[in-house]
Design a protein around this nucleic acid. Structure first.
Lengths: 225, 225
DNA sequence: TCAAAAGTGTTAGATTTACACCCATGA
DNA sequence: TCATGGGTGTAAATCTAACACTTTTGA
């Protein structure tokens, strides 16, 4: 309640993005080698600064857009990381966000231009500054979110098979699921619609493709998983 | 990953505290009327600025200490609130925290000196800026936390009766619980120790007092509730 | 003596888990 | 023809939820 602007000092504010993708049955994040000091050459999350006339959430969305060319991406704030010496150069407080994208939506050329790589979340190397801590918290929050809301679709193409969906849940939770029990639960969710389309890339027999129906989900929110 | 300090602008960083207390069977928070501009006279959370040489978490702990004289309080970050115009005066980004305190530990004189009041969470008035949003998020996160970890003790005296504990859970979750089922679950938790002490303030017959044993909890973490 | 809170077990229902075989197809 | 992933139901076990009466004591 006691606030006087003038006598207090300002800090730089940055945003850092943990960008999750799902590829070859594994949960991955996008990281790259830093191209500037401090920390040049170290593995790092992608981030950027918050501009004076820009909301923090907006800065995160813009940063992600600059990197991927994608808009309307599912993003959630992880929290503020504000240790005094977290940035070796200056006092920078960073607000971390995680994003869920469909890997196929992300142009490979663009990815390489930025020098980024998809790294298995189980094999993330030592990262710059406190970025490992951010990743840990992001994973925990994302896992928690997925357990309560159907956000997994954000990591898949619009049309997906039940096996893909199951593998996604397995990758996020780090444990195998029973196929029949999984499908039983999915069948109860009206907002996961079966289409008449068949995907034959994953098997000889082919598997039905499903899609997430946002309208049904919003109207009939017995959401739980 | 692309960071250049110089060309970016700095912001003021503040912390705001949602201080939860439990009194007369109701969950409450501490708020007061702002004593300075902008927003003078409006109901508001208690907050403060982050100093240049101070971690954000440290700033929150210090702010709480200045207000209550209490240290080692259970505090958790809620997140960053960073809309451009959230503060009517200047660009201030605020990191919100919630704290759980035992109302009896907070000196009444100190409370009045700061002009703060315990307000039922169900009756929180319109607050300054985005503080209502902070309170909403704090309640949600605290409720979530309580459902998975035994943090409720932080809101009670060291010794408490099972009825008090039950009322606390009921207040936080906003729903009544079955007394027998509740006590059954508590009995399974070895870290809630029954003492031989009796509290006679709540009833003529008297009720056994219990305490939370941190050591047992840490060693035997089948924690769930 | 009675009002008010403390304390205590059992049962039905719901949910969760474990588990195995046939199907369709392309190679 | 056979190897591969797709698809399907049932039964046991566990967990959850509902429910009512006796005890103690101060007023």
């Amino acid at each position: 309640m006691t606030k006087f602007y003038g006598e207090h000092s300002k800090v730089w504010l940055s945003v850092d993005c943990i960008i999750f993708g799902f590829e070859n049955g594994r949960l991955k994040i996008l990281i790259g080698k830093r191209k500037m000091d401090p920390g040049r050459g170290e593995w790092s999350l992608y981030g950027g600064f918050v501009a004076a006339d820009e909301g923090v959430d907006d800065a995160a969305a813009r940063t992600l857009y600059e990197l991927t060319g994608l808009r309307n991406v599912y993003m959630r704030q992880i929290g503020a990381f504000g240790k005094v010496d977290r940035d070796p150069g200056e006092r920078v407080v960073s607000i971390a966000y995680y994003a869920l994208i469909n890997v196929a939506d992300y142009d490979e050329t663009l990815r390489m231009e930025h020098g980024l790589e998809w790294i298995d979340v189980e094999k993330v190397p030592k990262l710059y500054s406190d970025h490992n801590e951010m990743v840990r918290k992001a994973r925990k929050m994302m896992q928690q979110k997925l357990a309560h809301e159907p956000v997994g679709f954000r990591l898949l193409p619009n049309l997906f098979t039940l096996t893909q969906l199951q593998k996604l849940y397995e990758a996020v939770n780090g444990e195998e699921l029973d196929k029949r029990n999984f499908r039983k639960r999915i069948k109860e969710m009206d907002f996961i619609e079966k289409t008449e389309l068949i995907d034959k890339t994953g098997s000889k027999r082919g598997a039905y493709l499903y899609r997430f129906n946002k309208r049904v989900y919003n109207e009939d929110p017995n959401f739980k998983l």
